[in-house]
């Protein structure tokens, strides 16, 4: 229990330090681009794992990123709002839509929940692709989205400034979600994942907890989506389709969903790997598939649990009983 109090501060500090140091080491726009992508992916995987921690695998998570992205792009280009307002408005739109959608999807669980959210994500993708072409840009995409612009005398249009903005957003998300995970909310969420019926009969309103995780996760995904829209300045419906969703799952699972630090490790390792494998183009996902299978076989609790597993093995070799089993994923 005492150890639990020190870990979050150290972990968040380490991420903050790494994020702050990078621009001091390099101003190369390619490396800043990769780093920005890591941070954007991290907000997505952290919020996805928030939902996984309550036992739900939401295959529409990427859609809420898309909803935030399109909402902000349209509010800026059509309504003329400032990015700094739509940053929160876009996320809010994603969260508000998550309430009815989550309420319906969470009536079921397990594979049915997986299928319902998957179907919903396809509906959203097709909607952005095929309907209101004048608004969403149809198959050729929504173009001409401006960069964030100025705030407090700073201009956010260069790579370093955008990196800094994403780093701040990401750190806010990381601090909030890590704090949640180490709080009673995290305790209850893990209880639901392990045995939802027992949790319910102990007075936990399982539905409300899952919906809270769903809506909060969608808010964070929407936030990442808004940034994505004004960072890339172009939106395609396929940005929020099955392939990026699968990558999101792969990143999170490879890191390990049993711990709040799993997505951090998974995202950093896999985003870097994805850059190194860029030459492979479409075969990249083949390599990721193989890595996922190997992870499931040899480290089902993810990369983050490897150090714990090694420590336990060492302790067992020394003849002492394991003090704590790793908290693994049981979807």
């Amino acid at each position: 229990m005492e150890r639990r109090a020190a870990a979050p501060v150290a972990g968040v500090g380490l991420i903050a330090l790494a994020a702050a140091t990078l621009p001091l080491i390099t101003r190369d726009s390619y490396y800043l681009d990769v780093a920005t992508t890591i941070l954007m992916n991290l907000t997505l995987t952290m919020s996805f794992r928030l939902q996984v921690s309550t036992g739900q695998i939401n295959m529409a998570h990427i859609s809420f990123m898309g909803i935030g992205a399109y909402a902000s792009a349209l509010l800026v280009t059509r309504v003329g709002l400032s990015f700094w307002a739509t940053l929160w408005l876009g996320a809010l739109v994603a969260a508000l839509l998550a309430v009815p959608i989550g309420s319906v999807a969470l009536r079921v669980s397990g594979p049915y929940y997986f299928l319902i959210t998957f179907a919903f994500s396809e509906v959203v993708r097709l909607f952005f692709n095929n309907f209101f072409e004048g608004l969403f840009g149809g198959p050729s995409g929504l173009v001409g989205i401006p960069k964030p612009g100025r705030l407090l005398g700073l201009v956010f249009d260069g790579k370093p400034a955008l990196y800094g903005l994403m780093a701040v957003l990401c750190l806010i998300v990381v601090v909030a979600l890590v704090r949640l995970d180490y709080s009673r909310f995290g305790l209850t969420a893990g209880a639901i994942r392990q045995a939802d019926l027992v949790a319910e009969t102990l007075g936990v309103n399982v539905f409300r907890y899952k919906l809270t995780a769903f809506v909060l996760g969608s808010f964070v995904a929407g936030l990442a989506g808004v940034f994505f829209a004004h960072f890339r300045q172009v939106l395609h419906s396929s940005d929020f389709g099955l392939e990026p969703m699968v990558l999101l799952v792969v990143f999170t699972v490879i890191g390990g969903t049993g711990s709040v630090w799993g997505p951090v490790i998974g995202t950093i390792v896999m985003t870097l790997a994805s850059e190194l494998l860029r030459e492979l183009h479409h075969y990249e996902i083949l390599v990721f598939g193989a890595v996922l299978i190997l992870t499931m076989l040899f480290a089902p609790e993810g990369l983050v649990a490897l150090s714990g597993a090694a420590r336990r093995r060492l302790r067992r070799l020394r003849g002492r009983a394991p003090a704590q089993a790793g908290a693994g994923l049981a979807p």
Binding site: S183, R184, L187, T188, A191, V204, T212
Partner: peptide, 27 residues
């Protein structure tokens, strides 16, 4: 039981209602 949790954590989940559940207080 919540098999991955410690004995104390199991009881703490049981004390859900008497503790401070919800998102706001935790954040």
């Amino acid at each position: 039981l919540f098999r991955e949790y410690t004995v104390l954590q199991n009881v703490l989940v049981g004390a859900h209602r008497l503790a401070a559940p919800g998102l706001g207080p935790a954040l």
